[in-house]
């Protein structure tokens, strides 16, 4: 059992847990993830490690309630536990002194890109962060990200904070202004990552995305996390999770992520009364 030491609601339906996991905290690097299982009847779901503190033996996980398992997880309190946590999994983010790096985080991906921002800054990069969500209420980690970035841009779909529009619009504006970018790391919903890839592609800016396909064992055994990269089948759990954005078949990934939507609905309905989904004006879905 892995004990939950702290729980923070970062925004509606997005939580940060500090969990006791000494071995994982010692080994974890930016960009890696864990697989958790809530209890005996739970699913195995992958979640990115948002932070780790080897001196305290803890890791931080940031997640959004999107299905039955994350709903059950969100209902856990400080002092309670998570039955299984396996990690750290996947290859860490490639962190070097690239020069000027743009880190893009969308939705719950804000929590996931944060450790990458810090690692890039620590390595001596000039870090520009672009953070986006549907509305102001769904933004989080802004202070932390400001501390580790040379410049932060915010976008919201409804314009309630920062630029009205998408993170990809902001990135395009920067490129159009002639700002030289050496590398982009983008983490967020599939349509967001695809949009970023489309913006940087014509300019041949090296762009890395962190993929979030379905996983089961996540140790290189089952093959459910297969993704098509440059026409080749790769396994996100052992070959990724980060890949060159310009080689990713995002449409296939989106399709594969939807395979159990009907089952997910059934599981959601029985797992507990439905959580109201966050309301923010007339904002559309993140894209």
């Amino acid at each position: 059992m892995f004990k939950i030491l702290d729980k923070t609601e970062l925004s509606e339906d997005i939580f940060k847990f500090i969990v006791e996991a000494p071995l994982i905290s010692k080994a974890a690097k930016a960009g890696q993830f864990v697989v958790i299982r809530m209890d005996e009847k739970g699913e195995r779901i992958p979640l990115t490690i948002a932070d780790s503190d080897p001196s305290r033996g803890t890791i931080a996980i940031v997640f959004q309630i999107v299905g039955a398992s994350t709903k059950l997880l969100g209902a856990r309190d400080k002092g309670q536990g998570i039955m299984d946590i396996l990690g750290p999994l996947g290859h860490p983010t490639e962190v070097e002194d690239f020069g000027r790096v743009v880190c893009v985080g969308g939705g719950v991906g804000i929590g996931v890109v944060y450790p990458v921002i810090r690692a890039m800054k620590d390595k001596g990069n000039e870090v520009i962060s672009i953070i986006g969500s549907r509305c102001e209420e769904l933004l989080f980690f802004i202070n932390e990200i400001e501390k580790s970035s040379d410049k932060v841009y915010i976008t919201t779909d409804d314009g309630s904070c920062g630029r009205k529009g998408f993170v990809s619009d902001e990135l395009k504006a920067l490129i159009d202004k002639g700002i030289k970018i050496d590398r982009v790391v983008a983490i967020g919903p599939v349509p967001m990552m695809k949009a970023i890839a489309n913006v940087t592609g014509p300019h041949k800016i090296k762009t890395i995305v962190s993929l979030n396909p379905l996983m089961l064992d996540a140790t290189g055994m089952c093959g459910v996390c297969r993704v098509t990269i440059g026409g080749q089948t790769k396994f996100a759990c052992v070959d990724g999770p980060e890949f060159d954005a310009h080689e990713v078949d995002f449409d296939e990934l989106a399709t594969r992520l939807d395979h159990y939507k009907d089952k997910e609905k059934i599981a959601m309905e029985i797992s507990s009364p439905l959580h109201p989904s966050p309301q923010c004006g007339e904002g559309n879905h993140e894209a």
């Binding site: 699913e43 195995r44 459910v224």
Partner: peptide, 22 residues
């Protein structure tokens, strides 16, 4: 087969939705 059998045997997907793996 690895994925299918893991879902069914390890995760007990045949008992969905009591067990959450579909």
């Amino acid at each position: 087969a690895n994925e299918f059998l893991t879902r069914v045997n390890l995760m007990k997907a045949y008992l969905f939705p009591e067990y959450l793996t579909p």
